[in-house]
Simulated scan of single mutants.
Amino acid sequence: MPFTFLFAEVDVTSPFPQYAYLGFDYDPLDYYFIPGLRRPWNDGYLTPVFFERGVLLYYNNHPDYSVKLTSFSSGNIYHQGKPMFSWGFGLNRGGLLFMWLGDLAEDFTAEKERDRKRFLASNVASDHDLVSKFYRSQLPQTPEEAFQESDNEVKVFDLKNQFDERIRRDFGLEISKIDIDRLTDYYRPPILEDRDQIFNAYLSLTKYLLETLQTENLKKALIARGVLESALKGLGSLKLLELFVKTVLGLPGEKTIMTPLYVLYDLRILQGHLAIDSFAAKYDSCKDRLQADRNLSDLSFFQVVVQALIQCFTTLLGYPVPQTMGSG
């Protein structure tokens, strides 16, 4: 029966009949109680509909689809490079995916009936939590909320590209073998609290951030600044980058700066040894070095690692302006 909300009659026994054909379960009270959702000119459009996050697995592993998480709490699905949803989706603090009821009506056209049924099978009851970058960007209260920066791997890739470009501009030096934008088209973010998914993501991040380094160019730049060639023998890409940061870029405290990259490399090594007896101790060591709680879940620690990488490349990108330009 109807109830009174702000002196208006709301019939919750037959909410938003224009969307009934979709078949989704939702709580109409969310629309009336959660700030910013009511739209008298388009009643019910911004009603959140919730889904199990696992629905993304199909698309993340299908060759014709990809899942792009623009932050830890927002993203979209792409089909052959084109967005599947006009406005994407949110990921709330409880790990549920949510979208607006009106958007679902517009995006699930007849051609996407299979996708609608797939989402319908993953539809769950509302937990009434919309806290996410998606929610704040869709209903912004400030310009900063409307144009939010990413807080996940997308930000890492962007900063890495900016760093490579600045080195190219300041020193005429190519330090990466390939534009990381091309590689990230194939990057598969971890979707669930699943150790294999998460450690495979560490493997991919290591490939993109470290294994693409032009070690020979780094060596040439170091030798040009007085480092003996004999001192560079046997050094891998990460050690060479660390020496480059200290000798060429002149950044102080380089070990602290580089710690996230060393932790990432060690996690990549652990990726191939998930079942060994020493795994737990080595994994704890990685958490300790980033000052993270050892009891964090794998997915929560993954977010810590990514945040640390963002800080790492932000610091690297801010190196002092060199007094002399060119490759030396």
Rank of each mutant, 00 (worst) to 15 (best):
P2T: 13
T4W: 11
V10D: 03
V12M: 11
F16M: 00
F16I: 00
P17F: 05
P17Q: 03
Y19E: 02
Y21V: 01
G23V: 02
F24M: 06
F24Q: 02
D27S: 09
Y31W: 10
Y32V: 05
Y32P: 00
Y32H: 14
F33Y: 14
I34R: 06
G36C: 10
G36V: 06
L37W: 03
R39K: 14
P40F: 11
W41L: 14
W41F: 13
N42Y: 00
Y45Q: 01
L46Y: 15
R53V: 04
L57I: 09
Y59Q: 06
N61E: 15
D64C: 03
Y65P: 08
S66I: 07
V67W: 00
L69S: 01
T70H: 10
S71A: 08
F72V: 01
H79W: 12
Q80G: 09
P83W: 08
F85K: 07
W87K: 11
F89G: 00
N92W: 04
R93I: 13
D107W: 00
F108W: 04
E113A: 12
R116I: 01
R118L: 15
F119S: 04
V124D: 10
S132I: 02
F134N: 00
F134A: 01
R136H: 12
L139F: 11
P140K: 01
T142D: 06
T142Y: 04
A146L: 13
E149T: 14
S150H: 04
N152C: 09
K155E: 15
K160L: 14
Q162K: 14
G172F: 06
E174Y: 09
S176V: 11
S176F: 09
S176R: 10
D179I: 02
I180R: 12
R182M: 12
T184D: 10
T184L: 05
Y186M: 05
R188D: 11
R188S: 13
R188P: 05
I198N: 01
F199T: 08
L203S: 12
S204N: 07
L205I: 01
T206R: 14
K207P: 04
Y208W: 03
L209E: 05
L210H: 02
E211H: 11
E211A: 09
T215Y: 02
N217S: 12
L218V: 07
L218C: 03
L218P: 02
L240K: 00
L243G: 00
L243E: 09
K246P: 00
T247S: 08
G250F: 05
P252Q: 07
K255R: 15
T259K: 14
R268V: 13
R268Q: 13
G272D: 15
S278F: 09
S278A: 15
D284K: 10
S285C: 05
C286Q: 08
R289V: 11
N295W: 14
S297D: 14
D298I: 05
L299K: 07
S300E: 15
V305F: 07
V305H: 04
V306W: 00
C312Q: 04
T314R: 09
T315F: 05
L317G: 05
P320M: 01
P320Y: 05
